[in-house]
């Protein structure tokens, strides 16, 4: 599903050049539940942004769904994001002046799905998250856990192949964190690849494979459940 080869990324801030990713080689198979761990500044968010087509890599090869991602037009990237990927963020990133249902339905608006149909679908997804009664509430009327579940519903509504979660539990207490993780695991069981960026050990240990980043390089890969990960290929991958 995802294949990274010698990915480099640096940011230029003023006269300084910050080399964030220094050659990442990684292969994530379809249906995996993977976490990326690392201290702040290790490059984990940058890696997720590149995986999520929110940022370009400077060097290396990135294959997503058997398609090499090179510098592509914004419109093309937007379309790929819309069709292939779902995002869950630490700060939820719901649109504040839209109610829960409208937030969930928004990705379908960009697929030109009719209003009626997408609202119906949004309600179904909210129902799955146990939030049907909250459909017409604005985000500021929801608790953190509820907001994150709305965000998960929004990520799911386009039936993506991959869910990218950036510190999905970062703003939640431990009880709701576990709930959200259970939700993500359930999504994973339905065959969707889930990639979670976190700095919390217990969250990472709920995933199949932990990729530890340090200073822009993969330091180690820990397989949590050997049985589920027989398919995981040792890196680096030779083409």
């Amino acid at each position: 599903m995802i294949r990274l080869q010698n990915i480099h990324k640096s940011y230029i801030t003023g006269t300084n050049k910050l080399h964030v990713l220094k050659g990442i080689d990684l292969h994530i198979k379809k249906g995996e539940l993977v976490s990326i761990m690392g201290s702040s500044g290790s490059g984990k968010s940058t890696l997720l942004n590149i995986l999520g087509l929110l940022d370009n890599h400077d060097e290396g090869v990135y294959e997503l769904n058997n398609e090499e991602i090179k510098s592509m037009s914004e419109t093309k990237a937007a379309k790929l994001r819309n069709n292939l990927l779902g995002f869950v963020f630490q700060s939820f990133n719901l649109i504040s002046f839209k109610n829960a249902m409208e937030n969930v339905a928004l990705p379908l608006y960009y697929q030109k799905v009719s209003r009626k149909k997408r609202n119906k679908l949004a309600l179904e997804y909210l129902d799955k998250m146990g939030l049907k009664e909250w459909a017409h509430h604005m985000p500021n009327e929801l608790s953190g856990g509820q907001k994150q579940r709305v965000a998960v519903a929004r990520a799911m509504i386009t039936e993506p192949k991959i869910i990218l979660a950036d510190e999905p539990t970062g703003a939640l207490d431990s009880k709701t964190s576990v709930e959200v993780m259970e939700l993500l695991k359930e999504i994973n069981k339905s065959g969707i690849t889930v990639i979670i960026v976190t700095h919390e050990n217990d969250i990472a240990h709920m995933t199949d494979r932990i990729i530890n980043l340090k200073d822009g390089r993969i330091e180690s890969i820990v397989e949590n459940n050997k049985i589920n990960n027989t398919e995981s290929v040792q890196i680096p991958i030779q083409e």
Partner: peptide, 16 residues
């Protein structure tokens, strides 16, 4: 800015 960023992340094209 943020709202536009969210929209773009979930698939809004530059034209929209």
């Amino acid at each position: 800015t943020k709202e536009i960023g969210i929209r773009k992340a979930i698939g809004a094209s530059p034209n929209s």
